Amino acid sequence: MSASAKTWLERIRALPLDKADGRPIKIMNVCGGHERSITMAGLRKALPDTIELVPGPGCPVCICPEEDIFEAIQLALHEEIILVAFGDMLRVPVNVAKAEARTLEQAKAQGADIRPIASPTEAISIARDNPGTQVVFFAAGFETTTAPVAAMLAEGVPDNLSILLSGRLTWPAVAMLLDSGTPGFDALIAPGHVSTVMGPEEWEFVVKDHKIPAAVAGFTPESLLAAMYSTLRQLIEGRCFLDNCYPQLVRAGGNKSAQAHLATTMQVVDANWRGIGIIPASGYQLAEAYRSHDARERFPTYADDARKRAGEMPPGCDCAQVVLGKLYPNQCRLFGTACKPRNPIGPCMVSDEGACRIWWSAGIREPAAQEEREETLA
């Protein structure tokens, strides 16, 4: 692991990488942070043409169900509350008439008291500073951001603070892809931060049940290239195991304290992923003992069942296909034309962990040719 990025690249280039069917070897990176590191470091161009790096379902903003965002917007507009949310969530659009608020940012412009925060501790501070006002924390995210919310609840929160929870687990989406029979990748780079919290063992199923090489990686080019080298060696040698290329933070068993807080304050349930549909055992809801702090229990419901249908992306937006690794960002029909960071149509162009936003920030601005899109989907 102490080798330089240059050394890892040389080791990868020295491997016999030709596949029998002539197709490139596809390595999926689950984490949006990994995708950002890969793209900003230019690793795709540095690797041999026989390797393709596929962005995966690791952007919590991208998969947050439209009905949850819609509910947050309506709560903020119609109730006398302060709504707080992680900053990226404020710009994610929902499908409504042009005259209505499409984002939390637009709802704020219409007079709703909506405030971006960076951590759960800020939600507690806002609640304590406003004891006469109900504060709703719209908490969307994967395990790494849901665990601090769980810890906050376990340690006790002000009576005027409630949670509108939209937490998701990462591994069930990968399991869904693998169970589909057409996962679209030959090896997996597992997320470092999620593995720090939940333990690398969560990803053993990739190796044991599906015989696909896997390695946990950190966020430096060195760690990512080491993980790629490991999975490529596994493919070549015909032996699969889960490698840990992020030993600085990832330990066997993960963070037991964080896991205990999650187990105490939350329950795992079937959950909707935007544009994808219901994935079994992939979401969190507050445990019975903490329902008094559930915004869905405390306030009138603004849920809209009509919004729970799969495929809930704006017309023409292929964000769901990008999230599932079926298309590259610039192969979306709207990329670089109707959809740009200043006017995002789909959620993948909003978040810093969204693959479309990452590619745009790296200077990839032109949409791919229709022929290239069709070839990828084939």
Rank of each mutant, 00 (worst) to 15 (best):
L235V: 13
A226L: 06
D159C: 04
I38A: 10
S351W: 00
P300N: 09
V84C: 06
S37N: 12
A97Q: 14
W360I: 07
V207F: 06
R115N: 07
I12D: 05
A369V: 07
P16W: 04
P315T: 10
P16H: 03
Q106H: 10
L43H: 12
A109D: 13
H293K: 15
L327M: 04
V30W: 04
V323E: 09
E202I: 10
P247M: 06
E375P: 01
S4K: 14
G283N: 13
A41P: 06
W359Q: 12
N244I: 11
V323N: 06
K256F: 04
R307D: 08
E372Q: 15
E204Y: 08
A226K: 15
M152D: 02
A127F: 03
Y246C: 07
A306D: 15
V268K: 11
W8G: 02
P191K: 06
V206Y: 02
P93I: 03
G141D: 02
C317M: 08
I82G: 01
H293Q: 14
V268S: 04
G325Q: 01
K211I: 04
E10C: 03
L188E: 02
W359M: 12
A139Q: 01
G111A: 08
G283P: 13
L104V: 05
K326L: 10
G316K: 08
S351K: 03
F219R: 12
S37Q: 13
E10D: 14
V136P: 00
I276L: 03
Q134N: 14
P300L: 11
I279D: 04
I276P: 04
A252E: 11
D129S: 15
R291A: 10
S162R: 00
L249G: 02
M89C: 07
A173Q: 12
E35T: 14
M266Q: 14
F70Q: 09
S180T: 08
A140F: 01
G184M: 02
L83M: 04
V61W: 08
